[in-house]
Design a binder for these strands. Structure first.
Length: 495
RNA sequence: GGUCCUGUAGCCGAGUGGUUAGGCAAAGCUCUGCAAAAGCUUCUACACCGGUUCGAAUCCGGUCGGGACCUCCA
């Protein structure tokens, strides 16, 4: 079964065919770095990280471009006034680029904690001013934009006469106009839906650049058009972002590309759904956002405890990327335990070595295992259904654990099946899902634990349960869980 | 108002018309010096009302509830 991707443009799953065989160009709208990223932002980047990883797993060479917006993002819907960076910089008496630096570093740190791979290219808006000026100039030359008093607007109504402006989210022009306010006396743009490509800066404005239209700064949507074209070309494979970006930001990107290059920028538009709290979207403006830091430390009034980055990642994997995901303590605790169970089984699986017997002694079990393994790729090919893959993985957990305890012999399945099981678990858990074991792997601690285990084994052999229980109880107080395995072995883990 | 999404067992959540998804929680059993893990078993749900069909959680229509977008947001 080939890879199929849900395309927002067609509102249907489509077979994925890259423009250049073996290569994928993917552009994802990154964060605006004027404040800390919250968990909802992280969800989108985790979703696309897994998409990126899976495309690589399939053998594609992927150029993954994710921008940093560090200029030009306006407050509110008025195409005038400050951008967010200038506003916060003035408030905090900082250089705008200090704000940008601070939150860019913070963003990268969080991405690393969540084990997201860095994109191939991470371009910034301020680093591509001349490209944005050039594309704006070209749109004017093509007749789809006009300049008034140093500000350049995109002429939406003119564009819509030639091609449907609301094509991405299936909206008609009349409906869009209905939801917009009347132009007031202070407005200089011609149409209610027109948006700024370039904005004239006031003299006191902290971030401004020279342009053919005077000193100013770029509009929000133009950066993505300029940067995606520069690094991926006029037409590339996948353009992604959060669902909230579809109606305005991505709609405008399509219009800009069409107006400038006479082509829609991407073949597949992918949108990830929102993270909610008590059923309402987590957002910066509502102030109901959790910061990753608060989650990892448990320092938040709504959190009962701290949750590890991998718990959060696993939590998100259990839901399909196009479904809303509701954030709650119960759900996170369930994920924490589920992840541990799955990862423990994986650790066990890694220890197995195939027996002498190459053929399966239990053909029924062997075919069941093979079927479940085969489902991993099958489910991922169906629009990246990570939740279903995890379902299949969990069905394999009892098989693995039974092998460990000798309830099932390892040669019940063929040597090739066992090898495949080990290979696919590693490929999926580590490479595709990007999960990892967070327990400290400390050599000193390992030595000490081995010593304690030896002492406890001797005590148990002598039926000196006072000593053996003391070791286990004291370790428990120190946060270490010591477990007796079948056959007299012992294992331990940090809680 | 417009464009969409959505309503699934105690909780989370996947579901391509016919086969118990899965996780967490709960209960029982097995293993065990005792624990903890682990294994086995149990809990079989699809908002409501119609329709199509041999058969609907799934398709169609309606009703009610929830949410998103249309204004800065991943």
């Amino acid at each position: 079964m080939p890879l199929r991707i849900y395309n927002t443009l067609s509102r249907d799953k489509e077979i994925f065919t890259p423009i250049t065989e073996g290569h994928v160009g993917m552009y994802v709208c990154g964060p605006t770095v004027y404040s800390d990223v919250h968990l909802g932002n992280c969800r989108t980047f985790i979703s696309f990280d897994i998409i990126y990883r899976y495309l690589r797993y399939l053998g594609y060479k992927v150029r993954y471009v994710r921008n940093i917006t560090d200029a030009g993002h306006l407050e509110g819907d008025r195409d005038e006034g400050d951008d967010k960076f200038s506003k916060i910089a003035r408030l905090q008496k900082l250089e705008p680029m200090e704000i940008v630096q601070k939150y860019t570093l913070g963003f990268h740190h969080v991405m690393q904690l969540l084990n997201n791979l860095p994109p191939s290219i991470e371009p910034t808006a301020t680093g591509h001013i001349s490209e944005q000026i050039e594309i704006t100039r070209q749109i004017i030359a093509n007749g789809y934009a006009y300049e008034i008093n140093g500000t350049v607007y995109f002429d939406v109504e003119k564009y819509n006469k030639e091609q449907p402006y609301g094509i991405l989210t299936n909206r008609r022009m009349e409906d869009l106009l209905e939801g917009t306010r009347e132009l007031g006396g202070q407005d200089e743009k011609r149409g209610r839906l027109d948006f700024a490509l370039w904005i004239k800066a006031k003299p006191e404005h902290l971030m401004q650049w020279p342009s053919p239209w005077g000193m100013g700064f770029p509009g929000w949507h133009i950066e993505c058009s300029a940067m995606s074209e520069k690094y991926l070309g006029k037409k590339f494979d996948i353009h992604g972002g959060g669902m909230d970006l579809a109606a305005t930001h991505h709609t405008n990107e399509i219009a800009q590309s069409q107006a400038c290059y006479h082509t829609s920028p991407a073949n597949y538009w992918m949108h990830t759904n929102m993270l909610t709290v008590n059923g309402t979207r987590m957002s910066k403006s509502l102030g109901n956002g959790f910061l990753p830091e608060e989650l990892f430390t448990g320092n938040h009034p709504l959190l009962e405890k701290a949750y590890a980055p991998m718990t959060v990642r696993f939590f998100m994997l259990q839901t399909h990327y196009r479904s809303t995901l509701d954030f709650s303590n119960e759900a996170l605790q369930a994920s924490e335990k589920g992840f541990k169970r799955l990862w423990d089984a994986y650790e066990v699986l890694k220890q197995f070595t195939a027996g002498e017997n190459k053929a399966a002694n239990d053909t029924e079990l062997d075919s069941k295992v093979n079927k479940l393994i085969g489902e991993f790729d099958e489910f991922m090919n169906d629009d990246f259904n990570t939740a279903k893959v995890l379902g299949s993985m969990f069905e394999l957990v009892p098989v693995i654990n039974s092998m460990k305890d000798g309830i099932i012999k390892t040669d019940a399945i063929a040597a090739t099946t066992l090898a495949l099981l080990q290979l696919k678990f590693k490929a999926y858990l580590e490479d595709v899902f990007g999960l990892k074991n967070e327990a400290a792997n400390n050599k000193t601690l390992n030595s000490v634990m081995n010593l304690l285990i030896e002492i406890r084994k001797e005590a148990k052999a002598k039926r000196d349960f006072v000593t053996s229980d003391m070791i286990r109880n004291q370790l428990a107080l120190a946060g270490i869980n010591l477990k007796d395995e079948k056959g007299g072995e012992m294992s331990w883990e940090i809680n």
